[in-house]
């Protein structure tokens, strides 16, 4: 029933390779930025700076490391920090809500820009959404 021709496979493969190339131009430089960022110790500096403000979201100061690992590196880094800190379930729920909105920014913002978004607006919407949901959850969750 489904008609498959060599021509379709050839065209699909060509389109796939072209798309991969477009994405590779973003993925390789951003991966290098993230690796340098992780090795530089900058994450610790940022975390220490923001720890006193975590109370805004009903979080303990140490949760800052989870938030910024997620914002800047990725959700797996954030999940790793959650496990390492053995945070209470309430804080995990707040952090999860905040991080689903806004994560992996060093990688995802350039990709979004490539796919038609405007960098500034997307950054503001994602970070703003994350902070708002954090405050709402911090206030709502017992």
């Amino acid at each position: 029933m489904l008609e498959v021709k060599g021509k379709m496979i050839a065209k699909g493969a060509r389109v796939g390779m072209e798309t991969t190339w477009e994405l590779a131009k973003i993925l390789v430089p951003t991966a290098m930025v993230v690796t340098v960022f992780k090795a530089s110790g900058l994450l610790d500096v940022i975390t220490d700076f923001f720890a006193p403000y975590m109370g805004l979201f009903g979080l303990s100061g140490q949760a800052a490391i989870v938030l910024f690992s997620g914002y800047l590196v990725n959700l797996y880094a954030a999940a790793g920090s959650i496990v390492a800190l053995s945070l209470p379930l309430r804080e995990i729920a707040i952090l999860a809500g905040m991080l689903t909105f806004c994560h992996s920014l060093l990688v995802e913002l350039p990709i979004s820009k490539k796919a038609g978004g405007s960098l500034r607006y997307i950054f503001l919407i994602r970070l703003g959404g994350s902070l708002i949901i954090g405050m709402v959850l911090g206030w709502m969750l017992p």
Binding site: G12, A13, G16, L23, P29, V33, V34
Partner: peptide, 21 residues
């Protein structure tokens, strides 16, 4: 970082090329 990036490209290629076909 370069290796991580190339790994990401390989992950993408493995999905995107079959997806496009």
């Amino acid at each position: 970082g370069l290796l991580q990036g190339l790994k990401a490209v390989w992950t993408v290629a493995r999905v995107v090329i079959p997806l496009m076909i």
